[in-house]
Deep mutational scan, measured.
Amino acid sequence: MQIFVKTATGKTITLEVEPSDTIENVKAKIQDKEGIPPDQQRLAFAGKQLEDGRTLSDYNIQKESTLHLALR
């Protein structure tokens, strides 16, 4: 499925993911596309910060959802 990640600079990244993917996997995909190390990424959805060990389906993130990326 496709999801979107909006960066602090307003850029939107499109990612191909599975509901079973962990947040860690998603951060690795962002690193592949943007070169941002996962340990510098903070992802949020619906106002909640997402934890590495959880999956997209844990957070009820569905196709075409938009996550927000902040850098630490």
Rank of each mutant, 00 (worst) to 15 (best):
M1G: 03
M1I: 10
M1T: 03
M1L: 06
Q2W: 15
I3E: 00
F4V: 06
F4S: 05
F4G: 03
F4D: 03
V5N: 00
K6E: 14
K6P: 01
K6F: 10
K6C: 06
T7M: 13
T7A: 07
T7L: 14
A8R: 09
A8P: 12
A8E: 09
A8F: 13
A8W: 08
T9A: 15
T9R: 10
T9N: 15
T9K: 15
T9H: 13
G10P: 06
G10E: 09
G10L: 09
K11C: 05
T12L: 13
T12K: 08
I13D: 01
I13N: 02
I13G: 01
I13V: 07
T14R: 11
T14A: 08
T14D: 08
T14S: 13
L15K: 00
E16I: 12
E16Y: 14
E16V: 10
E16A: 09
E16N: 13
E16Q: 08
V17T: 05
V17E: 01
V17D: 00
V17I: 04
V17K: 00
V17P: 01
E18T: 14
E18W: 15
E18H: 10
E18V: 13
E18D: 14
P19V: 09
P19A: 13
S20Q: 11
S20F: 11
S20M: 14
S20A: 10
D21Q: 06
D21Y: 14
D21E: 13
T22Y: 12
I23N: 01
I23K: 01
I23D: 01
I23R: 01
I23M: 04
E24Y: 13
E24D: 08
E24A: 15
N25S: 15
N25Y: 13
V26G: 00
V26D: 00
K27S: 02
K27M: 04
K27C: 02
A28W: 12
A28Y: 13
A28N: 12
A28H: 11
A28R: 13
K29F: 11
K29V: 05
K29M: 14
K29A: 08
I30L: 08
I30N: 01
I30D: 00
I30P: 00
Q31L: 10
Q31Y: 15
D32Q: 10
K33V: 13
G35A: 06
G35W: 04
I36A: 04
I36L: 06
I36W: 10
I36G: 02
I36Q: 03
P37W: 05
P37L: 11
P37Y: 05
P37I: 06
P38E: 06
P38I: 13
D39T: 09
Q40D: 10
Q40V: 10
Q41E: 01
Q41G: 03
Q41C: 04
Q41W: 03
Q41R: 02
R42K: 13
L43W: 02
L43H: 01
A44S: 14
A44M: 09
F45D: 02
F45I: 06
A46H: 15
A46V: 06
G47W: 05
G47Q: 06
G47V: 02
G47Y: 05
K48F: 11
K48P: 02
K48T: 14
Q49V: 08
Q49G: 08
E51T: 08
E51D: 12
E51L: 07
E51Y: 07
G53R: 12
G53D: 15
G53T: 09
G53E: 14
G53Q: 13
R54I: 07
R54Q: 08
L56F: 03
L56G: 00
L56C: 03
S57D: 15
S57L: 14
D58A: 07
D58H: 14
Y59K: 01
Y59C: 03
I61N: 00
I61A: 02
I61S: 01
I61T: 02
I61M: 03
I61Q: 01
Q62F: 12
Q62V: 10
Q62H: 13
K63F: 08
K63M: 11
E64P: 03
E64S: 12
S65C: 04
S65R: 03
S65H: 08
T66G: 02
L67W: 01
L67N: 01
L67D: 01
H68E: 09
H68G: 05
H68Q: 09
L69K: 00
L69V: 05
L69Y: 02
L69S: 02
A70W: 11
A70Q: 11
A70N: 12
L71S: 13
L71F: 09
R72E: 12
R72D: 11
